Amino acid sequence: MDLHDRLLVQLSTRDVYDARTLGGQPQSGLVFTGQAAHDAVRMVRRQGYAGPVLADRRRYAGSGRVSGTAGLSAHWIADQVEARVTIPLTDSGYIGRNDTRALRTILDQASRWDDVVAVLPLHADWLGPDLPALTAAIAGYGGPVALVAEDAASGARPEAFRLGLPLLSAGPEALGALAHGAPWAAVGVREVLRHLYPEHPPADGGWRRGGARSALVPERLAFVPVERLPEGPCPCAACHGRPLRRLAGAGELEVNTHNVTVLHRLHARMSRARHRRHWWDERLGAPPHHVEAAGDRVARPGVQAGGGAGLAGPEEP
């Protein structure tokens, strides 16, 4: 199964019964998340899902996150292969600020396997002042990698999409990664799967955890809390011209179906563009319509890559 130019949907294992619906768009695929992700892969394969499927153990997230120095598990790789993932992902721990030992540990151990993606969950500084060291390490490794970009303490997100490498746990910037040449990227179906939060975020960081629902407003490339959606109609195939605000009373599956439908509509438009980066830059520069405050916003033109003020923070409370 080819991962080329795929916009994947990243889900929890509890979403397994909705997975075929959410991953059914052309050029889509699935990323299951968590310790039992390989079991979810096995289940959708038994159900006949033929698209690309990955498994991200996500040991790098949360208050109990594991350091990248903890090492990689051969059993995790073997379980993924047995479950018939498209390509195995390492069960990497977190790579903290200036933690070159963690970065080297992951890359050195990942090199023991052929056709395995080394997952690099990065402190925001690795995509800012430490970017030269990161790119040199990746170039020296020579194998496939995927990035998970942590939000800065300010709520900003580094512009990891500009590196043209696969992204996990991303928001709309997954489209930017594809526009910059990434072979694939994954968008989370809910807020917690669209971000890697700092281990100790500030009290006023504004992060919406848990079951908060957000819908994608295409004019802004923004995931907006459903209670703050605009009145205007949505032309996507899931909404059929009905007001976007109706999603405030919809269930999570209906909201997520709207989200993946809009994302893949945008992806199809980008695929037809003569210059993908120009298309992406035009999307970033689109004037705001309807929404005054939104989360998961992408950076506006003029913000330099790695400058520390890239992608804005998550949905506002």
Rank of each mutant, 00 (worst) to 15 (best):
I106K: 01
T33E: 05
V66Q: 15
D99E: 13
T69L: 06
V116S: 09
G64Y: 11
G68K: 02
Q35D: 15
P26I: 02
Q109A: 07
D125M: 05
A36H: 08
G34Y: 08
V81F: 03
H75W: 12
Q109T: 07
D115R: 15
D39G: 01
L120C: 12
L107P: 12
G128N: 15
L134D: 11
A118F: 11
R58Q: 10
G71F: 05
E82R: 14
R104Q: 15
R20F: 00
Q25M: 14
G68R: 03
G128E: 15
Q25A: 15
L107I: 11
V81W: 10
A118S: 09
A19T: 03
R65K: 13
A74S: 14
W76H: 07
P88Q: 07
S111P: 00
H75E: 15
G23F: 00
R42T: 14
T100Q: 14
D91F: 00
N98C: 07
T105C: 08
G29P: 03
S28I: 01
A50Y: 01
A50K: 09
V116Y: 11
T69E: 15
A102C: 03
G51P: 04
G29L: 00
Q80T: 02
V53N: 08
N98M: 11
M43W: 01
Y94C: 01
G62Q: 04
G62R: 05
P88E: 06
D115F: 12
L22F: 03
A110W: 05
D108H: 14
V31F: 09
I95Y: 10
L107A: 13
P121W: 03
D91K: 01
D39A: 13
R84A: 12
V85E: 03
S67L: 14
I106F: 01
G64I: 04
Y60F: 11
T33N: 07
S28V: 01
V44F: 09
G34D: 08
V116M: 09
A61M: 05
N98L: 11
L30E: 01
V66D: 13
D115Y: 14
P52E: 06
R65G: 12
D99W: 02
A70W: 03
V31L: 08
G71V: 08
L103C: 09
L89K: 06
R45A: 04
R112F: 09
A74P: 08
A83W: 05
G48A: 03
G48P: 02
S28L: 05
H75G: 07
A74M: 08
L22G: 05
E82P: 00
V44G: 10
R58H: 02
A74L: 10
V119R: 01
Q25D: 12
D130E: 12
T90Q: 06
V119E: 10
F32W: 03
R104K: 13
Q47H: 08
D130N: 09
V53R: 04
L122Y: 08
R59Q: 14
P132I: 13
Q35R: 15
T86I: 02
P132M: 12
L131V: 13
M43N: 02
L30C: 00
P88W: 12
G34T: 11
P129M: 14
R42Y: 02
G128W: 08
R57Y: 09
I95D: 14
L22N: 07
Q47A: 06
V41W: 02
I77E: 11
S73M: 03
T33Y: 07
R112Q: 13
